[in-house]
Structures are given as C-alpha cells and as structure tokens.
Write a protein that binds this DNA or RNA. Structure first.
Length: 268
DNA sequence: ATGTCTTTTTCAAAAAGA
C-alpha cells in the first residue's frame, strides 16, 4: 500500500499565495494538506482552483486574518469539529478537524501571542489550554489522530538559529514551551523531531533581515501523532524549496508519510 | 527600534498583525 503523505502549510494569504500553493500541490502531491492563515473569508476562497487541482476541501475562513482549511486529494474531508471547544466567545478561525484518508486530522493555527506580556499573550496561553484539554480526548483514543499546524512555539533552543534576538518573543517564552511539553506528555510524538533528533530543522524564516538567505529559521510548524499513528511514521521533512519561490510565504510546507497498511497478523 | 509582507480602507497612503 502506498504511504499516506500529510502536510501542514501556513500560506500567509491564500489568494496572494495561490500560484505557489498550486505548484506545491502539483509537485509534492500530499494526500492531506492543512492550511493556515488563509486571510480570506469563505466567499473569497479560491475553491475552484483547488478543486481543479484534484482536492476536496473544507475551510473555516475569516476576513483579513487567521483562517484554516483541510484539503484532501481525490476525496472530500468529513468535518468532525469546527472551532476549538471551551470558549463560545472566541470568534477567531483557528481550528478545524476532519476524517480524511482514514485519519482524524486536526488543523490548527495557534495564536502568535506577541507582544508579551499582554492580552494577546494571555489569549495564546488560554487557547493553548483549550487545545490541551481537547487533545486529551484524542491522545487516548483508539483511532489514528494527527494534530498538524502552526503552533507558534519554538519547542527548544535547538529549534531556532539563535535565540538571542527572540528572548522576549512569545514563541520562545517558558509559558509557551511548558504548554507544548505538557501537550506532548499526553503521549503525542513530534514527528519531525522523532525522525531527525540530531538535525537543525526549520519551517519558518521571517521576512526581515534576510533570514531566508542566512537560513536563520525557526521550527514552529509541527505534526503531532497519537500513539495509534506514531508506529506508522515512515518519514518527515520540510519542503524548503517552496520558501525559495518568488513571493513565497514565510513558512515552508512540513510533512510526514505514514504506512497505513493493516497491522500484520502475529506469527504463529 | 528596526526590518518585510499582507490585508483593509473614505481609492491610496497608512494602519495593523505577524
């Protein structure tokens, strides 16, 4: 059976980024693509082009900011959840969940949280707590679950070119990192780190100060696997060539491949 | 403080978020 390729990509504006998105879908052909920062409301999403590329899609858009979508090659995702539970007053489009190709996939865009301290950082931390609460139900489930997205957390100093100029940034704060570790401790596997424990890997290079040209990156896009999926992890990586395109997003697509063939019968 | 890019809005320069 062919491996399943599942990716997450913060596009930073889906209308502006459509040519790059389509080129990536054509060349890498992920079976599932979680997109963040659509920056478009539902009526202005380029769905015709995405369908033409061979993908079914569900989306949770919002004018100007945020917005997430799940794309599925050759099929329509079955939506299981829209918005993170726990705060009915939260109107930001940051979470979408679906059954796709036999996997429950949560697509998330965790709040950036800058400047910190302040209300935006408070919102980040409370959103994170809601994610941890929701993730608990998936961590112990008997179904394969992947939580993929832009977590806006640099897990350790090994996940950034140099922490010095980022020490006050919300992405590196102990409170952010503690929550990421607490999430992992439910039993989630950070797929990129599991496959590449000794390698510097980045998924984001900001537009300032020639960060891409200097490979001054951060690893903030993560795919977390529950214990049912983790043993099926075959490979994981980052499509850095997409970051080198003209008019690129500041993030690169980050992916895993899973062997979803049925478990072998025990030998007798 | 700065750097750059995207979106929005009294339609075009500037604010805001990242």
């Amino acid at each position: 059976m062919k491996n399943l390729k599942l990716a997450t990509f913060n596009v930073n504006g889906i209308r502006t980024r459509l040519p790059q998105l389509l080129e990536w879908l054509r060349k890498e052909s992920p079976d599932v693509a979680c997109l963040q920062e659509l920056k478009a409301h539902n009526e202005t999403l380029p769905l015709a082009e995405i369908r033409e590329a061979g993908y079914g899609a569900i989306w949770h858009g919002q004018r100007s900011w945020n917005g997430v979508a799940i794309l599925s090659k050759g099929s329509q995702p079955i939506e299981t959840l829209r918005g993170l539970p726990g705060d009915p007053s939260d109107e930001q489009s940051r979470y979408l969940e679906a059954a796709v190709h036999g996997v429950i996939v949560g697509c998330l865009y965790l709040p950036n949280g800058n400047p910190q301290p302040g209300p935006k950082f408070d919102y980040k931390l409370s959103w994170f707590e809601r994610l941890i609460t929701h993730a608990q139900t998936h961590a112990g489930s008997g179904h394969p679950v992947v939580l993929a997205g832009d977590y806006n957390v640099v897990p350790t100093d090994f996940d950034i070119y140099d922490p010095r100029s980022w020490l006050k940034d919300a992405l590196l704060q102990p409170e952010s990192r503690e929550r990421y570790q607490r999430l992992l401790s439910q039993g989630w596997t950070d797929a990129i780190r599991a496959k590449h424990p000794q390698e510097r890997i980045y998924t984001f290079w900001d537009y300032f100060r020639k960060h891409w040209e200097r490979n001054a990156g951060l690893r903030i896009d993560h795919l977390l696997l529950n214990p049912v999926v983790a043993p099926r992890l075959v490979d994981a990586g980052v499509d850095t060539w997409v970051r080198a395109l003209e008019k690129a997003s500041d993030h690169a697509p980050t992916w895993i491949t899973l062997d979803m063939s049925p478990a072998k019968r025990p030998a007798r």
